[in-house]
Nucleic acid binder design. Sequence first.
DNA 1: ATTTTGACCGTGC
DNA 2: CGCACGGCCAAAA
Length: 108
Amino acid sequence: MPAPEGSFHARVIAAVRGIPRGRVATYGDVAALAGRPRAWRAVGAIMSTCRIPSVPCHRVVGAGGRLGGYSDPLRKRRLLQDEGLVVGQRKIQQFDAVRWTAPGSEGR
DNA sequence: ATTTTGACCGTGC
DNA sequence: CGCACGGCCAAAA
């Protein structure tokens, strides 16, 4: 289990696990929730190792609502649509309306 | 310890 | 709106 407590990996997974169904977050958001708002790079690398089914890694999308990457891009698109999201051919519609924001991270 | 890579992001044309 | 370039962080070799 490649997720020692206190590691960036564990924090990222915890953040992704906190994304409810029908909602999406960008790599930058996940990185910020993980405590490293500038580590979206590492977040993507970690997601690539996302072999844990307990983590809805398909809810992590690129900035601006882009699908981003995935082992099976088509599958990711279908999963998001299955959760009630409107996905275009390359980007998510109403992205701002479905973008997941951590409790307390909103405007203040 | 240094170098390379990766499911990225933002800016410029 | 699409492509090219640079910058950034962490893990692996």
